[in-house]
Amino acid sequence: MNTRLLMTLHVKVGTLLNIGAVPCGTRRTALLGGGTFEGPRLRGTILPGGSADWQLLRPDGVLEMDVRFTLRTDDGALILMRSFGLRHGPPDVIAAIGRGETVDPSTYYFRTLPRFETAHPAYSFLNRLIAVASGDRRPEGPIYTIHEVL
C-alpha cells in the first residue's frame, strides 16, 4: 500500500468516564484533555468539548475505539475527524498500559482509520482521502501517526 505522512497527533486524555458493563462489552469514554497535530500540510490544536474516544472492550479482549475530534488548524479551519480503531495485544502488555506504563508500541496492535470532513477550501483534500493510523499509547494519552492512503 502506498502511503504518505499526513500528520502526527498528540492527545492528552482528560476525564475518563467508566460507563461499565453494557450488553456488547465494557464501555468507557475518554474525554479529550488537549492535543495538537502537525504534518507537512496542516497543523493546529484539538478542541476540547465534543472531542472524545468512545471505547468498547469486547468480550474477545479487543478494544474498539470510536474517536471524534474537532481539529482547528493554525489558520482557523475547523475539521471533523472521526476514526474507528482496534487495540489488542498480549495480556501482560495490555495490563502494563492499564497501569500507565510506557510500552513499546510494536508489542501490541493499535490501528485506526481516520476520516475527515471540512468546509475549508484549503483543506478540502481531506474530504477525499482514506487514512490509516498507528497508535502509541503513552501514559498521558495516545500519539497517532496518520498516513494518507495514496
Binding site: 474477545d60 482496534l86 490501528r111 492512503v149
Partner: peptide, 22 residues
C-alpha cells in the same frame, strides 16, 4: 480506496475480527 471490516463466529477466521484493512 476502501476500509473493510469483518465479523465472524467461525473460530478459524476469528483473526478477521481483530484486524483493520484497507
Amino acid at each position: 480506496r476502501t476500509v473493510p471490516r469483518f465479523e465472524t463466529a467461525a473460530p478459524k477466521y476469528a483473526f478477521l475480527n481483530r484486524l483493520l484493512a484497507v
